[in-house]
Amino acid sequence: MNLPYQIDPGYIGLGFVLLFLLLILTFTAILRDKGRRSLGEAGLRKIPAFKKLWRTMNYSVESGKRLHLTLGRAGIGGEHSTSSLVGLSILKSVAQFVSMGDKSPITTSGEGTLMILSQDTTRSAYSSSGVAEKFDQADGQLSGLTPFSYASGTLPIIYDQQTSGTIMVGHFGSEAALIADASENTDCMTLAGSDDLSAQAILVATANEPLIGEELYAAGAYMQIGLTHTASVRAQDVIRWILVIVILVGAALKLTGVF
């Protein structure tokens, strides 16, 4: 069937983004109006990895051990940048929480801009907690620029710093296995998520708390960073159902020969 007129794909994309934005704003308003702050009240399913992360953060404060966050090797100017942004959100939440403890979290990354942003995020989290003097430039490190140099630069931090847990959130490739394996060898909690499919498959086997698919992007809601994060997870659910219906209707129309 030929359509009577052609719609510019750019406008369809823009419409899709605007619909997404509208849904996020609507859900933010609803959640704020009803004062729903806990995950259960917001209708989100439980993800055990985040529960363990909270437990590890508490343990880190009590035991005086450092938490290690590694943010991958994507910067903030490419197609994988959103996974790095999720990592920075988690870093902020973690740094604010553990700022009451003796040891600051240590962050490694495999890209220059990400290293600068990790330092800035830790510093600002400390400032907001009133302990700005605890910040050290070495809390955010560039561990390597190629995939394997990044992994091999990260391993000594896991082994030498006796960390209480490793949080791997960002863009990784197969080198993620080396980092996750090192963390497992030191009996640490390893929470790991990547936007890369092969890395996700590897992390299922190597990390004890892997994040699959969109779970990585839901981190903000589970770390209780803000209502917008919870609202965006709800918006994703609605959009997912819309797309599922569109795909099924499209398949049915194709099957019946309409298209």
Partner: peptide, 30 residues
């Protein structure tokens, strides 16, 4: 399975980008 996972990743990517555009996620601070 890969398409299903990618579906979730793409939706998460758009949501994260929109949060930055809205100023709700700020990887920069004063």
């Amino acid at each position: 399975g890969a398409r299903g996972i990618l579906f979730g990743v793409v939706l998460g990517t758009i949501a994260t980008g929109l949060r930055v555009l809205m100023g709700a996620d700020r990887p920069y601070e004063d």
